Each structure stands twice: as C-alpha cells, then as structure tokens.
Simulated scan of single mutants.
Amino acid sequence: MKPVFSIIAPVFNECETLPELVRRVGAVMDGLGEPWELLLVDDGSSDGSTEKIRELAAQDERIRPVIFARNFGHQIAVTAGLDYSRGDAVVIIDSDLQDPPEVIADLVAKWREGYEVVYAIRAEREGESWFKLFTASLFYRLIARITDVKIPLDTGDFRLMDRRVVNVLNTMRERDRFLRGMSAWVGFRQIGVPYKRAPRFAGSTKYPFRKMLKLALNAITGFSYFPLQVATFVGFIAAGLSILMIPVVIIMRAITSTQFLGQASTLVAVLFLGGVQLICLGILGEYIGRIYDEVKGRPLYIVREAPQDRE
C-alpha cells in the first residue's frame, strides 16, 4: 500500500538512539491512522548503526533503509530520503530525538488545513550551550538580512512538505545544499509550528562548529551575492582612502614632516591593501569552488543498498 506519510531520518553514528526513534515515530504515526514509511538514511556510520537499521527494517516492513557507500553529509542524506520517499506528505526529522516525533502530529494537522510547507520553530532549546544558542541566533538573523529569500527564523530541517514541494526540490540538484533555504525559495503556502527542542537522547552532537560553519557558508553563498558586494564596497573604500591620502602625503612631504620619513607608512599601506585583496580573492574563491563542484557533474551520493521502489 502506498504510504500517505514518509518520515526521513538521516543517521550518522546513532546506534543507541535508533530503537527509541523507531518506537516513538511508530506510536505517533499509528495514531494518525494512515499508511506511513520511515526512511533511515545511513550516512556512512561506523558505530553499528548500519546493522541496527537492517535489524529494525527486518522487524517492520514500513522501515526502509537507504545505506550510503560512505559519508556524504547531513544535507545529502536528507536529499536521498526525498528521492526515495513515496508519501503524499514528507517529514524531515533528526535521528537524535532533539526534534520530538510527537510534534509530527501538529505538522500533519496544518498540512490537512491546506498548507504545503509546515516548518517547526524552535521556541525553546534545552541542553545547548550559550555559544551554540548565540551563534545560531546570529546566523538566522544574518541570513534573513542578506538574502532575498524569506527564510524563517529559528528553524532547522524539521518540517513537513507536500509531495508537490518535494517534487520541485528533487529537480534542484546543486551540491552545496541548504534545504531549509531551498524549501523557502520554492514558495507554496507555508506556516510555522512552535515546539520545544529536547536535549539529545544519547551520544554526542554530530554537528560540531566546523560543520555548522560550512552549512552557514552554503546558506550565504547559495542564496546571496552579499559577500561579493562587500568585497566591492571594501575595494572602493580602500581606493577612496588612497586617493584622499595622495594630496596629504604630498603636502606633508613638502613641509618635510618627520611623520612621513622612512618606509613605515608605505609598509602599513601595502599590508592593508594586500590584506583587502586576499580577502576579496578568498570570497571569489568560495564562489568559484562551488561552480567547479557543480560543473564536474558527479552524483550527489552513492548508495550501497536501498529499496528498489522509489517515487
């Protein structure tokens, strides 16, 4: 029977959490009274999660494993789940149980009202450091200011999307993905549902600062030209200051001011302009590197094993 709901949970070294995730998702979805499936996308786990996924799938045919050949990253794992999902509505949820499965019922209720994207808003966040809370808040507000796409504040990937939205997303195959931005970009009727984010059920975070920074760069470069515009502004400012300093230097030299004797002032100016140029080259390099990745045309992921049937 074709499922009405597909739940996608990317998995990376979450062996301890998986049985509880399956139990809680099953309890919620059975309560909705419609056919469902749970896609567990193993993103190159090394802690026994792969074997645990196979074991759980053998116990319940509604659990569909998608096993990667290696680690490709969280956003790519979610993309694979979207590719293999078959439901009329698709829910993305983290496998660490920080996103409570019980909230899915609230998302479904809004979908049944006619909304096509229902995103979960993190009204409260337990078990997270002040640094994580501060940087997350700063990122959401920064991305809201510099992009033309209205990305909801304080939201992650936890959301429900109608099949029409998923079909559009499945045509967007860029490599450096920021799915919460992509789902906002496609439009359709959207609404948020607040919820209280829980601490991890077990284990440690799989999203350290390095991965958070990479995701932020993908969001900024994928939805904004602002860094390139900043480089242009800085260049004009540096050039303007240089032009203004030319008559000042000439006058000071003419009156033999000791402030401009020697090479110190020249060295400072050269180092400043050199730093500006290197920063601008770095910004250009970020965009060019992403173009380079796109033109190679490699697949987004490689699957070791997966269900034969897909949407």
Rank of each mutant, 00 (worst) to 15 (best):
L284W: 10
T205M: 08
A269Y: 03
M252E: 08
Q75P: 00
P100T: 04
G297Y: 01
T258N: 12
V168Q: 14
Q229A: 04
D148A: 11
V168K: 15
G235R: 10
L56R: 01
L284V: 14
T232E: 14
E124R: 10
R175M: 07
V41H: 04
L273D: 00
V108S: 03
K52E: 15
D157H: 08
G87Y: 04
F260C: 04
T266V: 13
V268T: 10
R210H: 08
R210S: 15
V165G: 01
L228M: 13
E20N: 03
D106L: 11
K296H: 08
R180K: 15
A239D: 15
L32W: 05
A184T: 07
V268R: 06
I63K: 03
R62P: 07
C15W: 04
I76D: 02
R125P: 00
R24I: 03
R200Q: 10
P101H: 07
L142A: 13
V41K: 08
A105E: 11
I243A: 15
Y119N: 08
I220H: 00
A105T: 09
Q75H: 15
E51F: 02
R164W: 05
S137G: 14
L281V: 09
I220K: 03
R197E: 15
K296C: 01
F201C: 01
L213M: 12
P307F: 02
G33R: 02
